[in-house]
Computed example of a mutant assay.
Amino acid sequence: MTHFIKQLKFDGERLILRNFYFLFFSLLMPAGFYVLFTRVMIVTGSKAFYVTYMGSMVVYSGLISAILSMATILKRDRDQGFVNLLKATPKGPMVYYLSVGVWSLVMSSLAIVVIGGIATIMNHVQLSLTQWFGLVGVAMFGQFPLLLIGIMMANIHHNETLSLVSNVVTFPMAIISGLWWPINFLPDWLQRIGKLMPTYFTNNLIAKVTTGGKLEINLIVGICAWSLGLVMILIVTPKVVHEWGVVRVK
């Protein structure tokens, strides 16, 4: 436990406190979008809109944190030999991965504090304590498949390719899953794709929690299915690559 706490402190200092890039894209940019869409582009909106768009920007923050930022951090640590160094220690790299995952969840929590604070002060959003806790719980739950995607993308060999793929995944996923504007603004064929995204499930689950709507089991099942599928890919892919490499050597 002491080792895990030390790893958390170490990663927190280098990933969060000394990384303005991470803070800007994970916190400030989604908060800026919330202000832009609710106070600049739309001067007067409904209470439901202010609440649901708050949830959308929380999900967007988690998307950026897991895919755009964490994938880059994991790849950098691997390229610099930090992960291989940890593999040579008795504890192994598992504590490191857990620490990075925890800090990604912490960033999602901070996003709720920042964006939720702006929504409360500027747009007079009022949620019950149960709804705030529900928002936090759903955001953490929905972050898991996004973290798995970030871990997979960290295995991309070239920085330029990773940067391109990160942007291609992050921003289109935000658009087609209805985080920036309502999904019904999109063409029908694109809506069908967007409604399969993990961010769509999380965003709509948060909307149900924060507006007092009836929870839909398919939203929870969708997040679980994504998580299970990605875990299986992470387990199977290294074995397939290893066996393929052995066959090619033979």
Rank of each mutant, 00 (worst) to 15 (best):
F25L: 13
I64M: 11
L63R: 03
S69K: 06
K75S: 15
I42K: 12
R18E: 04
L68N: 10
N84S: 15
R18T: 03
S69F: 12
N19A: 04
A31V: 05
V43D: 13
A66F: 05
F33P: 00
G55H: 06
F82R: 07
V83K: 09
L27M: 04
K75G: 11
Y53N: 15
L28W: 07
T44H: 15
A48F: 05
S46V: 01
F22D: 03
S26A: 15
Y34N: 05
A31W: 09
L36E: 05
L68G: 02
K47Y: 11
D79M: 11
F33L: 13
L86I: 04
F24L: 10
G81D: 05
A88S: 13
P30C: 11
I73N: 13
D79R: 13
S65G: 01
M29S: 12
A66L: 03
V83C: 09
S61M: 03
M41H: 09
V35T: 08
S65D: 06
F20L: 04
R78M: 09
L74Y: 10
V51F: 09
F20T: 01
V51C: 03
L36H: 06
V35E: 06
L28D: 02
Y21Q: 05
I64K: 03
A88V: 01
M70P: 00
T52S: 13
Y34Q: 00
A66G: 04
K75F: 09
S26D: 07
T38M: 15
D79G: 07
F37D: 06
S46N: 08
S69D: 07
Y60N: 08
V83R: 08
L28K: 02
F22E: 02
G62T: 00
A48N: 08
V35P: 01
V43G: 13
T38K: 08
I67K: 07
F33T: 02
V35D: 05
L74P: 10
F20H: 02
S46A: 10
L23V: 12
V59C: 07
G55E: 03
S69L: 14
S56I: 01
K47H: 11
Y53P: 00
N84P: 02
L86H: 08
R76G: 06
I73T: 12
R76Y: 11
R39M: 08
L23Y: 11
G81V: 01
N19L: 04
Y60D: 00
F49P: 00
T38N: 14
Y60S: 04
K47I: 00
V59E: 05
Y60H: 09
Y60Q: 09
N19T: 01
G45F: 07
F33G: 05
G55W: 05
Y60P: 00
M70W: 05
L36I: 07
V43Q: 15
I67R: 06
N84I: 01
F82Y: 12
V43C: 02
F49W: 14
M29C: 09
G81F: 04
S26N: 07
V40E: 09
M29Q: 08
S69V: 14
L68D: 07
S61N: 03
G45T: 02
T52C: 10
F22G: 01
I42L: 13
R39V: 00
G55S: 10
S65A: 15
R78I: 01
V35L: 14
M57L: 12
Y34R: 02
Y53E: 13
D79V: 12
Y60M: 08
